[in-house]
Every structure is written in C-alpha cells, then in structure tokens.
Design a protein around this nucleic acid. Structure first.
Lengths: 222, 222, 222, 222
DNA sequence: GATGAATGAGGTTTCATTCAT
DNA sequence: AATGAATGAAACCTCATTCAT
C-alpha cells in the first residue's frame, strides 16, 4: 500500500544514495504541491526544489502523477495510524468511551489539517483520475472494515441501536472523513471545538442506545 | 397603430438571439464538463459543441472559468429549491417529521447524482480556485442559515437535545452535503437506500430528544 | 491631401448627419489612439467611444488604417499651417529674422507636443506601413519645397554660405522635424527652451554668413 | 595534472551548446525582424528559422520583446563603438578636425543603414513600449555624455561659440542620430553625400567660432 | 444608413517528457 | 545514475471584419 507501483514499476532503488534522492524529490513535491497545488507545480520545479535534475526525476517516477500517488499512500497510512492507534476494541467497554471517540475525531481532523494543502491536491485528483479514485476507495474500505469490526463488537454487546451495522460503519466513517475534508478545503469557518463536540454527539447518539448512555456525563466538555 | 401586437415580436430580436447563443454555450459546456471534466474540455470544443465560434464564446464569457461559475450558481439555486421546497417550518410539528427529513436527504442526494459529473467538476474547482471556494461558502451559508432557523424553532419547542443550535445546523448541513458529494464522486458504492435510512437516523437521533421520538416508527423502512 | 482616399473610396458623405457621424468617429479615434496607441485600440472601442456601432465604423472607413490615414492628413495640414503661416519670404529681409526663425521652430515643436500621442502613433505606422511612409514623404516634400524656396531667395540675396541650397533646405527641415519628433516620443528630457535656443543658433549659423549676422544680437536669450 | 589542457574543453559543454542555441535564435530573429518587422514576425517563425523548437525560444527569452531588447543592446553597443572609436579628445586639436567630424557622421549613418531594418523595428518599439523607451534614453545619454565631454574640452580651449555646452552636446547628438534614423526609415531620398557634407557644415559652424575655422578648406569634398 | 452578433484564423505561451552526453 | 537542453503538441484568447436584420 505504501508503494505507488500500481501503474508502473520504475527501478527499485537499492542503493542508499538512490533512496535519499527519491526522498528529496518526495519532500520537494510535498512542499510545492501544498503551496501551489498539483497543476501549478511543474516537474522542473520539483526537481529544482529537490536539488536534482529533471532527468533524475524521471528516473525515480514515471510521471508527476505517480509521484503524487506515492505521497497519497504515505498520507493514508499515517492518517490510519493516527486515528486507530488511539482507538481499539478494548476502548469500547471503557468508561471513557465518549472521550475516546471525541479524541479520535479530533485527531483525524487535526492530522488532515496539518497537511491540508496536500489533502486538497490529492482530493482534486481523486475527483478526476480513475486510479486516484480507486486508491481512495481502497483506503476508505480499510478504515471502514476496521469500524465495522468495532461496531459489530458493540452491537454484539447490545450497546447499539441499529441492526444495520454496515450502514452504521459506513456512515460514521464518511461523516468523520468528510468533515475533516471540509476543514481541509478551507470551505468552512465554523469553530472547530464546537464542531468536534457536536460530531461526537451525533455519532454517539446515532450508535449507542440511550439506555447505555448517560447523557449527563456526555454534556459539552466546557 | 394598427400593428401594436407585432411590436413585442420586433422589440428585442437581438437580445433574444444573444440569450439563445449564451444558452447554447451553457448547455454544451454542461454536457462536455460532465463527460470529460473541466481541464479536459477546451473552449474550442465547447464552442464547437454549441455550434458557435470560439469568438462567440469569448463574447459571452471571459473564460472557461467564468462559464463554470455561471453553471455553479444555477446548480446551487436548483439544489436549494429542490431540498427546501419540500421542507418548511410547519413540517417540524408534523407527525410525519421523520419521513420528511428522510425525503429531504433523499432529494438532496438524488438531485446531485442527476448532475454528478457537473458537481464533481465544480468541486474540483472549489478545491483550487479562490473564487469558487468563496462562492461555495456563500452557498453553504445560505442553506446553513435556513437550517439554523428550523432547528431554532424545534429547540424553542423543546424538541431537541443540544444547546448549541449553530453547531447542530452546521453539522446537519455538512453531513448531508458531504454524503451527497460522496455519491457524486463515485467513491462509494454502499447501497444508497440503507445509507439514506442510516443518515436519517443519525440526524434524527442527534437532534431530537428520545422522549420526543418513537423509535418504533423509525425502524428500517423495508 | 486631406482625404484618405488613396487606397479606397468609401461613400462620400453627402448628408450633414453623415458628416457628423464620421467626425464623431474621427474624434473618438484621436482620443483613443493618443491614449493607448494604434494596435491597442480596437475598432469596437472606437465605435463605442464614438457612440455608434461597429457597422457604422465600416461604412465610413474601410478599416482602422484608413481612419488613421485621414487623421494623418489633417495633422499634417495643421502643422504646415502653424509653421509657415508665421514665416514668409518677406520675413527673410526683416531685421527680426532670427526671432522669427526661433518662433517657427518653437511653434513646430509645440504643435507636435500638443498631439504627441497621435504623432507617436502615426510615426509608428510610417515605420512599418508603405502607404504611411509614402504619405510622410509627400508631407516632408511639401515643407521642404517651401524651405527651398525661402533659402533660394536668401541665397540670391547673398545672405547664405552654401552653394547647395537643396541640401540646406533638406537639413534644416529634417533637423526641426526630428527634434520635434524627439520631444514627441518622450525620449528626451532636455530643457525645451535651451534646446530651441540652441537649434536656432545651429540653423542660423549654418545658413547665414557671419558677415550677415551680428552674433552680438543672437546670444542666449537669458 | 598531466591533462590540465583537456579540462577547459570538458569544462562547459552544456553552457557552450546553450550559447550556440541562443545565438542561433538571435541571428534568426535579426534576419526576420529586418525582413518583416516586429509584429509580423512570430515566435514560431523565429524558432523555425533558427532551426530550434518554440520551446527553446521560450527557454532563452521570456518573449519576443525580450529578444528584441537583447538585440537592441548589442546594436547600441556596436554603434557607439563605431562612432567613438574614431573620434577622441585628441582629434579636437588635430588639423584634420573637420574631416574627422565628417567621418564620424558618415560612420554613424552607414552603420545604421547596414542594419536599417533592425533600427526601424527597434524604433517602432521605442515609440510604444515603456521599457524600450527607457533603454533608448540610457543609450542616448551615454553618447550624449561623451559628446559633452568633448565639447567641454573644445570650449575650454576657446574654440567654440556657445556658453551652453550641454545644449550643444544634446543638439549635435540628436541631429546626427535623427538624420541617420531618417535614412533608416527610408523616408528620405536625398543624396547621402550632400547630406553628410551639409550636416558636417551645420555642426561645424554651430560649434566652432569662425576665427578658428578656415571655411576655405571646408568646401564640398568632391 | 445603421446595427451588433457572430466569425475564425492565427498568435502567444506552457510544460511534461525525452535523450544525447 | 545523472544531467539539463531541447522538444512540440496543444491550450488559450484576440480582434478586424462581415452580414443578416
């Protein structure tokens, strides 16, 4: 997943030096894509920013697109880790469930915002490029199945409302992903703290039966 | 004096022709943008598809971008009408509230899907173009304030949970908008009916206090 | 000479109304050519500034070029009059000859400066357009032959140095024309008063024998 | 250490190629500008004439204008050298002063005529382009200050009439420059030899006091 | 005569990619 | 492996001019 080898395989850098060059290119690209967007960053600029020649660029990447694909994979891996490292099955039966959920949401949004320029650029490609779109689906499916697993457990323990566990997993994932995306695009200026609090409520009430929840303890954090 | 009826026909023959030409261009652009996306559609192709010269294209639009901006406005107006024509303040106290909400969600998603190619293209621009982004904000704000108004009313009638009406309005709007967007991008293949049912539950449980709701009547429609 | 009918003849406006329309176009063109130059002024802009339609523009002028040709003729006529109305054969034997020469030079420069934008534009065309170049030659020849006539008279009266009257006329005319042109182009910032005084000396000393001149009375005007 | 001579050959193989390409473009441009003028020469034609791709054109020059600016600078340098390499301060006190002046004038005109197409094109731009106009001013100022220096020396030696050395330098320079320009534009057909002879007289008589000159030796060279 | 919508050839410029060194 | 000069297809846009009304 962390290798952009879907469309084509270029020389796998065996030497240490090669690895470094490739990394320099990736870092330069990340910087420039964030600043200017995908179309407005030229391969010459990336090479120049990386301190290598355009020729080298094309030794390591078949084209600009495959470079972004590489970056895409890394980003997705990082995000997945950030979110789910702090949220496991055991937390479901924790008395601190609600804060845990809230924290996971907050982390997802924060991590995306850190690299918002990049997420914007990638999403742009997801919208118009078949391969990006497919990769995006895979990534979504990965966290989706993780959520499905967790919600199934909760459902088995009779904590949840719905019979449709799959729909629940799908929606929860989408809702969190999309809201982070909204903050990435810069299209919304609503206070982030209140939005996270609200979203936590939305998800919490959606999933868990009122019997199981003490709303008293889940009031606004303030 | 005897022919006063003809005057209206003669009145604006030039204006009428202009309007038609402009409309031909808009329709051609909608068709091509849907099929090929923004970047891959050239002004020459639009003109040619519309059956006019490139020159005419540039008489009516300063560039491709301004044409898409025009289309964007139309689309936003249409969507707003489709969603909120079927959902007014009076429906809040209706016994049919839940089905109404579900229908509004379904309409929003369906309308977007009808023109999904277009919504994709526009969102692509929202991601990278300042003016599109600003226009997007305005449009979001419009439906947001409508929702705020409705939720305030419900809150005043003690139907809702949250004190933070603004956050609630913001989230509900985002969640619906974003999910429709997900179906537009083609990034998700989850069964639409189950997703709508789930989203209705999510919003319903998020907003309305359990006392006020009879979950019995809100089970899966099937 | 005052009609741009060299390349083609369009309808000669018989009606008063027509004349007015044509004049409006000419005035609008003068204004815009001065402000923006020839290439940067479009026929649509001229028509619009004149308050008529582009169609009308092409009724009165075959093209943009022929319009400028019309303006060219007018300008040349005006300039000729301004310069030579104040300088006749009789002035040659006047005791005030030097001041008369100085005044003629000053007038030539001043008149050109008044319409410098226009002179710039026309000269631009003279440089690249055969017909403008030919017209320019004619105009130059006109004032040249006037000067030849005057210098011949002075020569006959034994006031001048040179045997080569033709060369003298040619040079005097060029020198004055070109210096005014320099002030038109805005390429020189040298104090106009001192330049005129110097040029008067240059021409005076060039033409008239020292015996005939009392340099005492021709010192710097200061 | 044994091969230090080869290093200079290997040193800049890339740079050398670049220089050649740039030079090919410049030469092609000179040829085409002379033949067709500025506007009527397209960047594609220049590249094609130079035997390189349009892309290369834009590697070396930001646009057609900057290319002409480069040519402008070269031309100005060449002209300056041609004129002032043959005329130094020492020549002022030479018995051959008058022939030297005549020769300098002749050289200036001849050099310009050699490249008349180019001078025409450049002057066209001087008329309508701010940057060309500014560059033109600088160039004029350069030869102007050289002349001021020379005339000051002559003035100090009591050879000249005028107290206004600056005006004299300004006028002499203009008069020579402008007359050469007249021959460049092709606007005048007057016999060049007689014109040069006349201009020499004009300048000579303007600058130098009659006491210092023996007009006997300044008759037509023929 | 007047109108102004429509035309379309043709110029400018960009940039991902190649390939000789 | 690395280089970077060179490529050239292809997009954008302008504006003088026409012609149906």
């Amino acid at each position: 997943m962390a290798d952009s080898s879907t469309s084509s395989i270029v020389a796998a850098p065996k030497q240490e030096r090669s690895k470094q060059t490739k990394e320099k290119i990736v870092q330069a690209a990340i910087k420039l894509f964030q600043e200017r967007g995908y179309e407005k960053t030229t391969s010459n600029e990336i090479a120049s920013e990386a301190g290598v020649s355009v020729g080298s660029f094309y030794v390591y990447f078949t084209d600009k697109r495959s470079l972004l694909l590489t970056i895409f994979d890394r980003l997705a891996d990082d995000l997945y880790k950030v979110v789910f490292d702090g949220f496991n099955a055991e937390h479901l039966f924790d008395s601190e469930l609600r804060p845990r959920i809230k924290q996971a949401i907050a982390k997802a949004i924060a991590d995306k915002q850190r690299r918002s320029g990049l997420h914007k650029v990638i999403y742009e490609l997801v919208l118009k490029d078949q391969e990006f779109s497919a990769r995006h689906k895979e990534i979504m499916e990965r966290s989706n199945s993780k959520l499905r697993e967790l919600i199934s457990l909760a459902h088995a323990a009779n904590l949840t409302w719905d019979a449709d566990v799959e729909a629940a997993a799908f929606l929860v994932q989408r809702v969190v992903f999309d809201l982070s995306q909204d903050y990435v695009t810069g299209c919304c200026e609503f206070d982030l703290g209140r939005a996270i609090e609200g979203l936590t409520n939305m998800i919490y009430r959606f999933l868990f039966k009122p019997a199981a929840i003490s709303e008293a303890g889940s009031g606004p954090a303030k």
